[in-house]
Design a protein around this nucleic acid. Structure first.
Length: 509
RNA sequence: GCAGCUGUAGCUCAGUUGGUUAGAGCGCCUGAUUGUGGAUCAGGAGGUCCCCCGUUCGAGCCGGGGCAGCUGUACCA
């Protein structure tokens, strides 16, 4: 083996690397990780309370198991990160947690209890253009019931979604779980003559138009159902090309929401007309509504909303969406539309792809990053309490006493107090700054004077900051400023642990 | 993907009709008694003016082409 070439850094430095991330991928900092962990724990508790059990599947699946081959090509779909294994089989990073669950259930079908109720969280990957709050790697938290055909399973998941949002700190009234049924949408499309294979494209365009109701309003949807729509940048979107009377019929569906669930259901029954499939959908919604009402969740927490569409790929029955309804402003004072933080529905065909028989299933998925962003905006305690305090910092005043400082740190740690000795090479002022930036509750100072007296100084940084803020502007020169030594006291070195404990206790921990 | 807008210091941004060595505020570092974060003052470090090509005696500025970001739109399992 020959010696590897060593780059000669002295003579000819290599071109400097640019430190950067691929777009759509982000680093996570300590507070974010802490807040996310707390939020995930709260979600997990709620799911466990409902009787769901944990399961985990890997990041990588066979591409065909995810259902992501283009119909006519031997090549994975765009939007999915894919690569070929050494045996040339296509593999993909999972783009959601539902398709892998379907694979898992199919593979372990005979040993799993049915209905099989499980939850899992994890990273998923989508190879597409990122946007604000939209990344190429993000986390989802799903719960699914597989093997239950009853819409009671759907109703339960809606109620659990409501409980989950409240558990993580979204107040009742600040969210709504909207429920619809794909069969109702199919029924309406049938009554306006959009049944059959040759109308599939138009159906798609119509469903997409309906899905945009909350963003574009009825007029925007009307334009998209008819000729088309020009947006504010001047870009044009071709419409479905429906005649005016059919456009009205579709808008009658999206506007079918009444004051009560009964009124909404009556409107829907009218709009689906003679369609058997539509009537089936309305009946399912009716059953969900009565289950939700019986459990006491019909107080605005769970509502029928005929404009909910969700994804177009695999939903077959009830669909649901958790929407946040409160108004917020961003950093520049612009109103932010928060919208959907979770969604799901019934996908009776997904497991069936792996088995001869149909397997009913329903589930939903929380967008973890979006929900966390929402919790920050409403200042949920889950997020705000997660701002972890830093360690106690023992300053290094005399280099030749490092062993002694380290011994003090060891005593603090032995007492269960997070502590560290300053490991840099800067002076005291920089060490104070360091402790400040770490969020330390206090620092321990021992110079030659204190050591001679067998004492240590303890400075309470939190109290010190408060006192300094109170005096801001009233201090004339730097000598006076330095002489203040705010919130600082001396104590015998043997009482170090007790004194630090006292400071920590002052600040609740 | 399509459309519009924007790329100058770590961040937010100035930069004249094209003209020496490209600036400010904040942040960062150092210092102001031996030993004090958050106040004040003084100093310092930090730049491929997004990249390439062109026009010009001369380009941060003008032209062309890329790339990236933002906003909208499309897609969203």
């Amino acid at each position: 083996m020959s010696k590897p070439e060593q780059p000669n850094v002295l003579k000819q430095p290599l071109p400097r690397l640019v430190a950067r991330q691929p777009r759509g991928f982000v680093d996570r900092s300590s507070p974010d990780i802490a807040a996310t962990d707390r939020m995930l724990a709260a979600i997990r508790e709620t799911y466990e309370l409902y009787g769901f059990e944990a399961v985990e599947t890997p990041f990588v699946e066979f591409t065909d198991a995810l259902g992501k081959f283009l119909p006519d090509q031997d090549r994975p779909n765009e939007g999915v990160f894919s690569f070929q294994d050494d045996d040339e089989q296509w593999l993909s990073l999972r783009y959601d947690l539902t398709a892998p669950l379907a694979r898992y259930v199919a593979e372990n079908f005979d040993t799993l209890p049915k209905p099989y109720r499980s939850y899992r969280s994890g990273w998923v990957f989508r190879n597409e253009k990122p946007g604000p709050g939209r990344f190429r790697q993000f986390m989802q938290f799903d719960a699914d019931t597989v093997g239950a055909a009853s819409v009671a399973a759907d109703a339960e998941i809606c109620m659990m979604a409501a409980d989950t949002l409240e558990r993580v700190g979204i107040a009742r009234g600040d969210y709504v779980i909207k429920v619809n049924n794909r069969k109702v949408l199919d029924g309406v499309l049938e009554t306006i003559g959009l049944a059959g294979e040759e109308k599939a494209h138009t159906r798609l365009v119509v469903l997409r138009a309906i899905d945009k109701l909350d963003r574009l309003g009825p007029d925007g949807v009307r334009a998209l159902l008819g000729e088309g729509r020009r947006d504010e940048s001047g870009d044009y979107t071709k419409g479905a090309g429906l005649p005016a009377d059919l456009v009205d019929h579709v808008l009658a569906l999206t506007g079918a929401k009444g004051q009560t669930a009964q009124a909404t259901l009556a409107n829907l029954a009218r709009v689906v007309g003679a369609s058997a499939r539509g009537a089936e959908g309305v009946a399912e919604l009716e059953e969900i509504a009565s289950l939700v009402a019986a459990a006491g969740y019909a107080d605005g927490r769970v509502e029928i909303d005929p404009a909910v569409v969700r994804g177009l790929e695999y939903y077959t029955g009830p669909v649901y969406e958790a929407e946040l309804t409160f108004e917020v402003k961003d950093d520049e004072g612009r109103p932010v539309r928060f919208g959907s933080v979770a969604g799901g529905g019934r996908y009776d065909g997904l497991v069936a792809r792996f088995r001869g028989e149909p397997v009913p299933a329903t589930g939903f998925s929380i967008g973890v990053s979006r929900l966390l962003a929402a919790l920050k905006l409403v200042k949920s305690p889950i997020v705000t309490d997660a701002a972890a305090r830093g360690p106690v910092v023992v300053l290094v005043m005399d280099r030749d006493q490092v062993a002694h400082y380290q011994a003090m740190v060891a005593r603090l740690r032995a007492a269960g107090i997070r502590a560290e000795m300053y490991l840099g090479s800067s002076g005291m002022k920089a060490q104070m700054k360091y402790a400040d930036r770490r969020g330390s509750p206090c620092v321990v100072i021992q110079g030659s004077n204190e050591r001679a007296a067998g004492e240590v100084q303890i400075k309470d940084l939190i109290e010190g900051a408060a006192q300094a803020a109170a005096k801001a502007g009233s201090i004339a020169d730097s000598a006076e400023y330095r002489a203040q030594r705010l919130a600082q006291f001396s104590v015998g070195e043997d009482l170090l642990v007790e004194a630090v404990r006292e400071v920590l206790a002052r600040h609740g921990g």
